[in-house]
Amino acid sequence: MSRSVLVTGGSGALGGAIVRRLRRDGDDVAFTFRTGREAAEALAAATGAHAFAADLTDAAQVRRMVGEVRGRLGRIDALVNNAGSAQALPFALIEERDWDEVLAANLKTMFLVTREVAREMVARKGGAIVNIGSLAGHRAFEVPVHWATAKAGVTGFTLALAQEFGRFHIRVNAVAPGLLDDGVGRMVPERAAADFVAHCAGGRRGTTAEVADVVAFLLGDDARYVNAQCLCVDGGI
């Protein structure tokens, strides 16, 4: 039986790769988008996934969106919390509104969506959640401090939720990509990118497809004994 999966932030580079990979596995997939309507519609048309527009920082919109997804898919077996955004600002230029915005886009969205989706997982006593973090939440990198803070928060969110939901047989894991060749990775200056590659055992940037493969693994039965983990997909740093 195919799974029903909700992927947040599906219109971006990594979200799109995850949607494509899950569709290739035969999953029934819904994804959300906020600004990239054209990309979202193209992805939906290309993959047969279902696109839903929502501002995930707004609890009412999240509730409406999850209701619509359930109406379309019937149920939600698995959730990929991928939505987020970044600002390339040094610490001196981060304003209060930037801090609030980036933490909301990367963490509050994760909380609100999970709160709505997990209700039926708890009731059903089963499910899988994968949260997208970043290597920058674990190691020292030249990245915006508010974004790294949010990505470090993903790890805490994952660990505590896995502990709390363990008794409901809901696995909660995180994936922490290193530098990728698309998405946020395209905002990294060439000099910093070269520095990453020089310290990467794999000797190159990763691809969004390689991260999507790991997400698919963590959602599947092959990972049934993998829980409360944060898997770094970084080529070996």
Binding site: G36, S85, A86, Q87, A88, L89, P90, L93
Partner: peptide, 13 residues
């Protein structure tokens, strides 16, 4: 800040 936000707009590098 505004210059950097122009150089690195959110969501569309």
């Amino acid at each position: 800040r505004d210059l950097l936000c122009t150089l690195f707009p959110q969501g569309r590098p």
